[in-house]
Design a protein around this nucleic acid. Sequence first.
DNA 1: GTCTATAAAAAGATAGAC
DNA 2: GTCTATCTTTTTATAGAC
Lengths: 199, 199
Amino acid sequence: MSKSEETLASIKEVSYQLFAEVGITKTTYSMIAKAVGIAKPSIYYYFKSKEDLIAAIFEDLCSAIQFSTFFEMDTFTKDNFEEKLVELGIHMIDEQAKDPYYNRVLQEYMLMATRYPFYHEKLLMIQKGYLHGFEMLMEKAKHFGLVSDQASAAKAHMLALVLDNIGNFMMLVEHIDYKQIWVEAVSGVFKGSDASGSK
Amino acid sequence: MSKSEETLASIKEVSYQLFAEVGITKTTYSMIAKAVGIAKPSIYYYFKSKEDLIAAIFEDLCSAIQFSTFFEMDTFTKDNFEEKLVELGIHMIDEQAKDPYYNRVLQEYMLMATRYPFYHEKLLMIQKGYLHGFEMLMEKAKHFGLVSDQASAAKAHMLALVLDNIGNFMMLVEHIDYKQIWVEAVSGVFKGSDASGSK
DNA sequence: GTCTATAAAAAGATAGAC
DNA sequence: GTCTATCTTTTTATAGAC
């Protein structure tokens, strides 16, 4: 990693943290420069405007949160299905909880998405990836006879909504068992036409 | 309503809309003054600082979104329970969808809550109101023999999470049947020890 | 209550030396 | 690549007349 690559990475990292801590709008080039340890105009060598910087951080974020990053369709079998779904969801929650800035930065960009088409398009695609991904999972579960035919799209969307928004909830309320909530959401969906797991 | 009360109401209304449309930070006294049709310093007669204005809009918002505003415990009986829960949830979704600014403004304040203790405290209290409110509802449902004993707190929290965050989801994705998602979430919870409604 | 005028601070951004 | 110096614009906020 060259010196200039290091500076670039440092600017991005510091910006990401500041976006979470004080918000995108209130993050200034002065603050970034001070935190990185360079002069304010030096940032313009890497990002010709603040708008560019905001977009660059966004691109990095988008890459990390695709549905396929956390849910591999092939790992689901008739026998492990519900268990696997619980496990991968919890893994996703854990991964995102590791990064103390993630939820706040994502929410910052969610609000930007309501104001700028560029951000709306990209986040919508990711969101649709989750909706569609869970629909596919429900199809597979239906094929295995693990869930009822009824409203399987709504079931899929409910799961996507719960998982995607546990992070939002975590921002405010700390002392809750989020994993249990996910277990409950999944279990509610699979209680329909249970062929195997009757306790 | 006196002239001065009208001006005050207008400042608040315009600010609320601007908070949604361009964000709290990017909303300036110039923009507000222009939209209201007064001079910029006139706003200082009503709000001695922008900070004060932001807090005032917040207080108004908080009053409108208490758990008890939407869920009246006494209306739930053994026979109407699931149906009532679905109905009141949908009513809440409808009410909030009527106000095109609501979700964005709330999310703005959610982010403020992660940065300022004042906002954190108030929103946390509201959130806890929902969590506790749904816990009480689950207790009542348990008492009626409508849900199983297992993980009833997690069930309650799952419902609170789904309902509170449908709004967040609606900001981004428009074409989804949110009511069906709520129906599905409720139905998943009640599928446990179903004494009456066996189809 | 509402205005005009203005102060004080800070923002995003550029010029140009090294 | 990184710096110092500087420009322009806009912000929140105040003073004081009407």
